[in-house]
Every structure is written in structure tokens, then in C-alpha cells.
Design a protein around this nucleic acid. Structure first.
Lengths: 142, 142
DNA sequence: TTGACGTCGTTGCATCTGCAACGATATGCT
DNA sequence: AGCATATCGTTGCAGATGCAACGACGTCAA
């Protein structure tokens, strides 16, 4: 009995994730030419206020190098400010600039509308989906 | 009210997909050093018998170039045979070699056990998750 | 038949990713 | 204090990815 790829959860997850990210990226592409890592860094800074590269690396599931390069691009674009931590001079504190804050104000509106649309498409399955995904994607594991 | 990334479905999907794929890849890494595209090509050939690059591209959500290169590597590894279609000489028919069939026999066992473990972890949410993912990942759209 | 157009698989190229260094700094042990 | 060890952010590098060509082949209409 051969194996069926189209009921295999890792495959379904991968395809659904890719497609959903692409749909969302198309929405904010008009607003700002951000990559997904850049968007995640901005979003995290928006709700945490300030964070180091390490914090984002740990909490947002991006490699250190990806965060570092995304932060550099965002700084060059004037959306983020880097600032050496005075207590621990290895750390670099990232904060949204006023322009970054303004951009996130618009982007978070787009994101919330997209989330609402997804929830509408999923109907009553939406909360279960979110719960199941959170179980598959633990917050702290490597 | 700032935006919360950790309830955002595209983000949850991405992290869950990455982590689940990594768990699965670790399982078959010992059995065969396959990349994910290679695994998908093998799995699709296992249950379709024969398929062209185009077929796999359309059904398995991989770029043409990715399928082409994966097929070349698999052929060089002796797991897949390429064969020109006699009717339409643009097409290249891919089939599992005996070695490829034997490998898939072992890999599909690993895959089914992993799927069973995931289902066990998810409990009653598993069928709902699968249904929701299928709705987010339509079979034919570009 | 001829020629325009579409499709197939491959390849080149720019970019992104993940991993392993590396220098700078901090921490802990003696 | 002094030195080994660990952590932080950056960078180099090999490999993978997505996209746009490209040549080869097929299809359709005139």
C-alpha cells in the first residue's frame, strides 16, 4: 500500500504555511517592500518595545544571522534604531523609529484584516487550528 | 494596541511547519540523506508510479527547477530512473528504481509512524487540523 | 508545409538561508 | 587579579530557492 503525501501533516503544514505567507506578503507588498524576516522583526519590536537580536532570535524563530541582517536593512531604511546596551555592551537594543512605528500602525491593520479573513474562511475550525499549531510550535525549544 | 505576532496564523503556520519538518527530517536522516524536495519527489512517485517533472511540479508544490534538480540528484543516487516519453518527447517520465522502491518501503514506515505520533500529540484536534490545512492549501492554485 | 505560439525540462543568476567561525565582551572559578 | 569559558552580534561561505531566460519539441491555423 503506497504512501499518500496529501494527507501527511508535515506536507500539509508546509504547503499551507507557504501559501498563507504568500497571500499575506502580497497584501503588504504594496505598503512596504518587506521580507518576511523584516516583517517579523518589526512586529516583534512593535509589541515588545525594545529587544536585542538574541531576544528576537529566541522568540521569533529566526536564525541570529537572519535577524542581524534584517535589522541592518531596517536600520538603513530608517525604520529601526540600533543602540548599544550600556549595562551589557555585547547587546544591541533595537527599537522602532517613528517611521517604523507609523509603518507598523498601517501594517498591523492589514495583518488584522487578513487574520479576520482567514478566520472567516476557516469558520469554526479556526480556534482549533490555532491551538493545534501552538502545540506543534513550542515557544522555546531549539 | 500593538500587534501580537504569536496569535497570527501565518506566523504560527510557518513555525509549526518548520519545526514539524525538522522533526521528520531528523527521523529519516539516519535512513537516507534526503532533502525535503527529494523526499517529496520520491513519495509522489511511490504512489503515482510514474510522473513527469511537470506533474510533480503541479501536484507537490515545488518549483519546476527544484523538481528537476532533485530528480537529477535522485537519478545519480540510483533511486530514480529518467526516461523520455515516446509520445511527447518533451516529457521526461520519472520512475522509482528497485532501490528507490526499497527505500520508500522503509521511509513510508517511518513517515506513518511519525504521522501517528503527531496525531497522538494532537488528540481530537488532529482531524480538524488536517481539514483546516487542506482548506488553506488548495490543490491547484498557482 | 509553414510559421506563430504554447509547453516541457534545464540552466544561469541573484538572493536567501543555516551553520560555523570570529572578535568583543561578560561571567565564573581559583 | 587572572584566566578559562560562555554569550552576543557579525560575517564568510556553501547550498537551496525562485524567477526568468533558453533550446527542444508539440499544436494549431492558414
Amino acid at each position: 500500500m503506497p504512501f499518500h503525501l496529501d494527507t501527511f501533516l508535515p506536507y500539509l503544514l508546509s504547503v499551507a504555511a507557504h501559501r498563507t505567507s504568500a497571500r499575506f506578503a502580497a497584501l503588504y507588498a504594496a505598503e512596504a517592500g518587506l521580507t518576511i524576516p523584516e516583517w517579523r522583526v518589526l512586529a516583534h519590536l512593535d509589541h515588545s518595545g525594545a529587544a536585542s537580536v538574541r531576544d528576537i532570535h529566541a522568540l521569533v524563530h529566526l536564525d541570529k544571522s537572519v535577524v542581524s541582517r534584517a535589522a541592518s536593512r531596517l536600520e538603513q531604511a530608517g525604520l529601526v534604531k540600533k543602540q548599544g546596551d550600556t549595562a551589557d555592551r555585547r547587546l544591541i537594543v533595537l527599537r522602532l523609529s517613528p517611521e517604523g512605528t507609523a509603518l507598523m500602525l498601517r501594517l498591523s491593520g492589514i495583518a488584522e484584516r487578513f487574520q479576520a479573513q482567514l478566520v472567516a474562511e476557516l469558520g469554526t475550525d479556526a480556534p482549533t487550528l490555532a491551538r493545534a499549531l501552538q502545540r506543534l510550535a513550542p515557544g522555546s525549544e531549539p
